[in-house]
Every structure is written in structure tokens, then in C-alpha cells.
Simulated scan of single mutants.
Amino acid sequence: MKYLVSVSIAIILIACGEQKQGDENQAVPVIASNSSNHSDTFNTAFSASLTAYYALKDAFIEENISKVDTAAERFAKTLSVIPLNEISADSIKSEAGVLTESLQAELIGLKGETLLEEKRKAFQLLTEQMTTLIKKVQFDREVIYYQYCPMAMDNNGAAWLSASSEIKNPYLPTSMLECGEVKDTLNVVRK
């Protein structure tokens, strides 16, 4: 029996990509570049939406339904004020508009759920849509980490975005807070 428990723990640690001692994960600051694809107004509004997304993620880590709902409301409000009309390419502007509307609809659905696990399912969809939006508009003001845990959502895996490379899993915060890995960085920097 002890052998079985030891093997199970070893498998979990391997699956979660346990960090080596001394391996430091540093938050990367906002990129200070003189050139951007977008205006300062657009960048400020988009950054506010990212900050609201991160607050939603953190509320899931705290497992506080009230904070999740409040963060979802704030996220929806920040999405509604992104000046998409400033995007020059009509096709990108149109697709970004559809994505922000879809995000807002998903946030309404998230708030309508009563169980935290159901809210997490909506958060999983929000993450994928937000990732697509970031890539579509080529947001270039900060490094965004796309993180993934293969054990989240009943071992189907799920992703989230973070401003830091440090892993804090919003899907399994009480049992496997540090389970996951950085799969990608969304980093569109103009030189």
C-alpha cells in the first residue's frame, strides 16, 4: 500500500512539472517600447481588461464565489470600453468585436452559474477567447503567460493567462496550486 501511495505521489509531481529548488519565477514588467501597434488609449483600456481577467483568475484561486462574480462584472465592463474602432484593419476590428461580445456573453453565463466548478468551466472558455483576442489584436504592451495544467477539469486539461511565469492554478487551488506549466508567452513586441 505504501508503495502505491509513493508511486501516485511521484506521478502527480511529474505530471505537474514540479519546480526545482532555487528556480525563480519572476514577474515580467510591462514592456516599455516607444512603438506600439495601438494608441495609448487602446493599450490602457486593453491592459485594464487583462488586469480584470487576472483578478477573476485570482478569485478562482481564493475559491470565493462572491469575488468571482464581482471580478466577472468588472471584466465585462472593461471589455466594453476597449476602443476597437481604433484598429485600422476592418477584418481584425470585426473579429475583435465578435470576440469581445462573446467574452461578455460568457461572463453573463459565468455569473449565472451557482456552483464554483460550473463557473470554472466558463472561465476555461473565457481564457481561450481572451487568448484569441490578444493574438488577434496583437497586443504589444506586456508579456502574457499562457499556462496549462493537464490535470485540471477532470484530467482533460485547462489553461489560464497570467502576468507572471509563476504557476498558481485557478482550477485546482486547494489540491494542486502549483500544478501546471507555461506553454507559451503571448509577446508581440515592436522594435
Rank of each mutant, 00 (worst) to 15 (best):
E73S: 15
D58A: 14
K57V: 12
P170K: 06
S36V: 03
L116C: 02
C16Q: 11
V143R: 13
K57A: 10
Q19E: 15
E62Y: 07
S175M: 03
S35D: 04
A89W: 05
L172N: 10
V81G: 01
V137T: 11
D154I: 03
I134F: 10
S6T: 09
Y145T: 09
L172I: 09
G157W: 03
A163F: 00
A52P: 00
D69H: 11
Y145L: 10
A52M: 07
D154Y: 08
L99F: 09
M151Q: 07
N187A: 07
T131Y: 13
I87G: 03
E142A: 11
E128I: 10
M153C: 01
G17P: 01
A27H: 00
A105T: 13
I167Y: 02
D40F: 03
T70K: 13
Y148L: 12
G109A: 10
L50V: 04
I9K: 14
A158R: 08
P173R: 09
I144G: 06
S39V: 02
A10I: 14
C16G: 15
I9Y: 08
V189W: 01
I144W: 05
K67F: 02
E142K: 14
Y148E: 09
Q129R: 15
K191E: 10
Q147C: 11
N187I: 02
T51C: 01
V137S: 09
Y54W: 15
V189Q: 13
S162N: 06
I65M: 10
V81L: 05
S35G: 00
P29L: 07
K119H: 07
G112C: 07
